[in-house]
Nucleic acid binder design. Structure first.
Length: 523
RNA sequence: GGCCCCAUCGUCUAGUUAGGCCCAGGACAUCGGGUUUUCAUCCCGAAAACAGGGGUUCAAAUCCCCUUGGGGUCACCA
């Protein structure tokens, strides 16, 4: 059997779509599973954009996730060029061949004529088919048209008596009636190729064996099959995988529907997270990032392992119970026959659960490395490499335990990084736990003194100190712990109380308690 | 509207190709209980689905037909 070659062909849009990434992943997986090659080819026939700006984020997404490509931009390869804009001669040659063999024809009909034909068909409730008027033209008429400079396109001459059979690796046998298909334009008036032509020529000449793509392409597969056949190429194996749907629905995930997603309960938390995190790390307007883009996940602190695991499980499964899989394990087990047929909604909760798992697999050092940049960008630490700072970050991360899910979660624990007189108090919690509590202030005074005189400020010693305290006072732990937490951290929840005190250190704890007492009495 | 695809818990899925091992298994989310004298975690438990209707068969989530529902696509976009 020949080497498996798969490809992903993004158009440079300036961002990498998370659904597109899933398609790319399946292609990559299939190539790697078979020891074959994965090719990246750029569909840049629409040349209006600045290519490097538009392509950069896409390549970056692949690099971030660790999905390497064997041929394509930056690495090249023997079937290049890998930019469609540089392959025009190839397309023109193929069109000339089709024209010469009578498998395609020049069409001189105007857009207005075609539009009128379409409407007529619509009115009569019949399927639209080209009238093929240009086929009736005599040679001299054609010459005259060319001499006049009349615009024309090249259309594929669809053999209307055929049934087109596709044996799809995911969908099975699918049949289309060519008698229902209008002749598709394959070359524009300006001489540039259309997608269906370019993709077929590229796939054939790059020796792609498996075309794995989203199912919205299923309906233009018959056109492509016809082009493959007209050009005398062997058909690749097609595998039309379900698209990634928006959370809580079956509609294709699309950047055009962002406003709708913002209101979706399932999606809302992802937007909320962006609003909470991005402005703090210097990205105004969330940096133009949203959860449809792969970059959103990178910037908010997801791990490649989590994204890959979640994406692989969207429309594919290993068996009846395995959820957590490393990329190696997925590569080892990935087969086309285990791809699901129906569209699957991206589930933010499940993604977060994968993320939580993979974050927990990291060593403390790795966690520190992931979290530190957030603190630094938010201006909470000056130099994360400084030993004392690094020590503080490590301690907080240890204390956070499973509360650390995405790397930017560290920002929720900013109380450990702000100056004592800059600490902000959650107003509601402060009122409840300190201001409106009769016993809070006297108890805080007492515990402050005890803490100030403590010899040992480690968590275990503080644990004992607090227990001795409540016993001496004849109160319950709950009576002091909430007020104490509010005073030193400003918040109602956080890491374990004793760890919290120990990390802050004696001096900070005392100062913060004093400040809280003063604040509670000033209003 | 034409053509095409799809249909199992709220969600992602196992089971459908080779009908019986499935009064349907797992995971996420949810709810309840326990641990943590705070929060999160963790542990235990609960609730939760074969879209509907006809067949075929001793036996159907699984095969056939119809209906319904959802989605994709109908460009000189990709």
């Amino acid at each position: 059997m020949s080497t498996v070659r798969t490809r992903f062909a993004p158009s440079p849009t300036g961002y990498m779509h998370i659904g597109g990434m899933r398609t790319a992943l399946f292609n990559w997986l299939w190539a790697r599973h078979n020891g074959g090659q994965f090719i990246l080819r750029i569909d840049d026939t629409d040349q209006e954009r600045n290519l490097s700006e538009a392509l950069g984020p896409i390549l970056q997404a692949f690099k971030w996730l660790g999905l390497n490509w064997d041929e394509g931009p930056e690495v090249e390869g023997e079937y290049g060029p890998y930019f469609q804009s540089e392959r025009n001669d190839l397309y023109r040659a193929a069109v000339d061949q089709l024209l010469a063999e009578g498998k395609a024809y020049r069409c001189y009909e105007t857009p207005e004529e075609i539009q009128a034909d379409r409407e007529a068909a619509q009115n009569e409730k019949r399927n639209y088919l080209n009238l093929r008027r240009s086929l009736e033209l005599t040679e001299s008429e054609k010459e005259q048209y060319e001499a006049e400079g009349r615009p024309s396109v090249v259309r594929l001459l669809v053999p209307r008596d055929q049934k087109i059979q596709i044996d799809d690796a995911v969908r099975g046998h699918v049949e289309f009636d060519a008698g229902l298909m209008p002749d598709p334009v394959i070359l524009r008036g300006n001489g540039t190729p259309l997608y269906n032509l370019a993709t077929v020529i590229d796939d054939a000449q790059m020796k792609i064996t498996h075309v794995i793509r989203a199912e919205e392409h299923l309906s233009n597969t018959p056109v492509q099959v016809l082009i493959f056949q007209a050009l005398g190429y062997d058909l690749p194996v097609f595998a039309h995988i379900p698209f990634v749907a928006a959370p809580g629905g079956k509609e294709k995930l699309s950047k055009r529907k962002l406003d709708k997603y913002r209101k979706s309960p399932q999606f809302k938390k992802m937007f909320d997270k962006a609003e909470a995190v991005f402005p703090r790390i210097g990205l105004e307007n969330a940096g133009g990032l949203d959860p449809v883009m792969v970059e959103y996940y990178e910037k908010i602190g997801y791990l490649p392992e989590a994204i890959l695991n979640a994406l692989a499980r969207l429309g594919w499964s290993l068996d009846d119970k395995t959820e957590i899989m490393s990329l190696d394990k997925i590569v080892e087990n990935f087969t086309l026959d285990r791809i699901v047929k129906s569209a699957a909604g991206l589930d933010p909760d499940k993604l977060l659960s994968f993320q939580s798992h993979w974050m927990n697999q990291l060593s403390l050092e790795e966690k520190v490395a992931h979290c530190s940049p957030y603190l630094q960008k938010a201006g909470l630490v000056k130099d994360a490499g400084d030993p004392a700072t690094r020590q503080r970050i490590s301690q907080v991360i240890v204390g956070m335990e499973d509360r650390l899910k995405v790397a930017s979660d560290i920002l929720d624990f900013d109380e450990f990084f702000v100056a004592d007189d800059q600490l902000e108090y959650d107003e509601k919690n402060f009122k409840k736990r300190i201001q409106n509590s009769e016993e809070a202030v006297p108890l805080l005074e007492k515990i402050k003194n005890r803490l100030a005189n403590a010899d040992d400020f480690h968590a275990e010693a503080l644990d004992k100190l607090l227990h001795d305290f409540v016993e001496a006072e004849g109160i319950g732990m709950g009576q002091i712990i909430h007020a104490l937490r509010a005073a030193v951290s400003g918040k109602g929840t956080g890491i374990g109380m004793f760890d919290c005190l120990a990390i802050l250190g004696k001096e900070s704890c005392v100062k913060r308690i004093e400040r809280a007492i003063t604040l509670s009495q000033s209003e």
